[in-house]
Structure formats: structure tokens, C-alpha cells
Computed example of a mutant assay.
Amino acid sequence: MSRYRGPRLRLCRRLGDLPGLTRKISKKQTSPGEHGNKNKKPSEYAVRLEEKQKLRFNYGLNEKQLLRYIKTAKKVQGSTGSVLLQLLEMRLDNTVFRLGMAPTIPAARQLVNHGHICINNKTVSIASYQCKPGDIITVKPQANSQNLVTKYLMFPGLANIPSHLELDSKKLVGKVNGVIDREWVALQLNELLVVEYYSRK
């Protein structure tokens, strides 16, 4: 999968705060590039594109994956934007991040890919696995897995764990109690503009 490997703060300066991508905060206030201070009003297309890019880079998706999530969300009854955010928030890598077991979503994805995380006592190494209410997320009993997650839990990426999750930090066990509510989504985003962006293509 083609992943963004460039400077993360550059993206945050351009798109705004991306809590899933990095914990660093840039001291520079302007947008990146030679003409970062320009006050030109963006077009409607540019605004939609920016919202789509926020979603992509925060959750670490490529264009093809995001398009697939949009198509799935359109088939589900209810607001397409809200369903899309629920699908992305219930991904395993994001759930591990929101539990505080990893400082960022890329770090959570690495934990999952390297086989440190189990769901219902079965090792799952697919970051895009959709967590369901009732799933129990545990860390492998091996010492290196336990030490790694314990170290991450000392400095969680976000201050609060969402209401649909619960964590026993001593046993390193997390539980999914339901589907996330819109107000618990950490990313500042207008998801309707993302849906509009794809509906006009």
C-alpha cells in the first residue's frame, strides 16, 4: 500500500490538527510552501478536497480505500457522512489508538501488523479489521508486546477514551461496548463535504 512518508507537520500546517497522524505541534503558523501566506479565497472544490485529504491522512488511507468506504457507507441506511466516520472509527488500528495503546494511528497500525494485538483471543494482523460491539481487544502475553503497550499507555495520544470503549490498563484489555457517537470523533471535519466531493466526481 502506498503510504505517506513525508513530513507530517507539513500536512498539519496545511490541513489543520490531525490527532491520528502526529502528536507534534508546529511553531509555524503559515501554510507550507513559498506562498504560504496567501489570503486567496479557496474554491468550493478546494474546500471539499481539503476535507477529504484531512480524512485520508488522519486515518492513513489511500484513495482506493477511502472510495470503498464511501461506497459501503452509501449502502447503509442513515446519514452517509456519519456512517463513513463510524466505519473509519471502528477500524482496529484506530480503536487501538483511541484506547491509548498507541500514540498515533500509524503506531497502532504497526502494533497490529506485527501481531501484538488479539481480538477475542485470536491474533489479528489486519489494521482495517472492523471492530464490532462486544469485541475484546487484548495484548499478546509475550513480554515485548506487553512492555511496548505499557510504555505507550503512559503517554496516550488523546486525553479521553470515547464512551463506546473501555480499558483495563492493568490487564491491558479493551472492550468495544457500542458504535462511536459523532461528538467523540477527535478530528475537526465536515464529513458532508467529503461525501459531496465523491458524489460530484
Results as ranks from 00 to 15, higher is better:
Arg56Asn: 04
Arg56Asp: 02
Phe57Thr: 00
Asn58Lys: 13
Asn58Thr: 06
Tyr59Asp: 02
Tyr59Gly: 00
Gly60Met: 06
Gly60Asp: 01
Glu63Leu: 00
Gln65Lys: 15
Leu66Thr: 13
Leu66Phe: 12
Arg68Phe: 13
Arg68Leu: 09
Arg68Pro: 03
Tyr69Ser: 01
Ile70Gly: 06
Ile70Asp: 08
Ile70Val: 13
Ala73Met: 00
Ala73Ser: 15
Lys75Thr: 13
Gln77Trp: 04
Thr80Arg: 01
Ser82Trp: 08
Ser82Ala: 10
Val83Cys: 03
Val83Gln: 12
Val83Thr: 14
Leu84Phe: 02
Leu84Lys: 06
Gln86His: 02
Gln86Asn: 06
Glu89Lys: 07
Arg91Thr: 01
Leu92Thr: 00
Leu92Gly: 01
Asp93Met: 03
Asp93His: 08
Thr95Glu: 00
Thr95Gly: 02
Phe97Cys: 03
Phe97Tyr: 11
Arg98Glu: 05
Arg98Met: 06
Leu99Glu: 05
Gly100Thr: 09
Gly100Ser: 07
Met101Ile: 07
Ala102Lys: 08
Thr104Gly: 03
Ile105Met: 01
Ile105Lys: 07
Ile105Ser: 02
Pro106Thr: 15
Ala107Glu: 13
Ala107Lys: 07
Ala107Gly: 07
Ala108Leu: 03
Arg109Ile: 01
Arg109Gln: 15
Gln110Gly: 02
Val112Ala: 03
Val112Glu: 04
His114Phe: 04
Gly115Thr: 05
Gly115Glu: 04
Ile117Tyr: 13
Ile117Met: 04
Cys118Arg: 15
Ile119Cys: 12
Ile119Tyr: 03
Thr123Met: 11
Val124His: 10
Ile126Asp: 02
Ser128Asn: 14
Ser128Phe: 09
Tyr129Glu: 01
Tyr129Arg: 01
Gln130Val: 10
Gln130Thr: 10
Cys131Glu: 01
Cys131Trp: 08
Lys132Thr: 14
Gly134Phe: 11
Ile136Lys: 15
Gln142Leu: 12
Ser145Tyr: 12
Ser145Asn: 12
Lys151Cys: 08
Lys151Asn: 14
Met154Ala: 11
Gly157Glu: 04
Leu158Val: 14
Asn160Asp: 14
Pro162Ala: 13
Pro162Trp: 12
Leu165Val: 10
Lys171Leu: 14
Val173Asp: 05
Val173Trp: 07
Val173Met: 04
Val173Arg: 15
Gly174Ile: 06
Asn177Ser: 09
Ile180Phe: 07
Ile180Met: 10
Ile180Tyr: 13
Ala186Pro: 13
Leu187Asn: 11
Leu187Met: 07
Asn190Asp: 14
Asn190Cys: 06
Leu192Tyr: 11
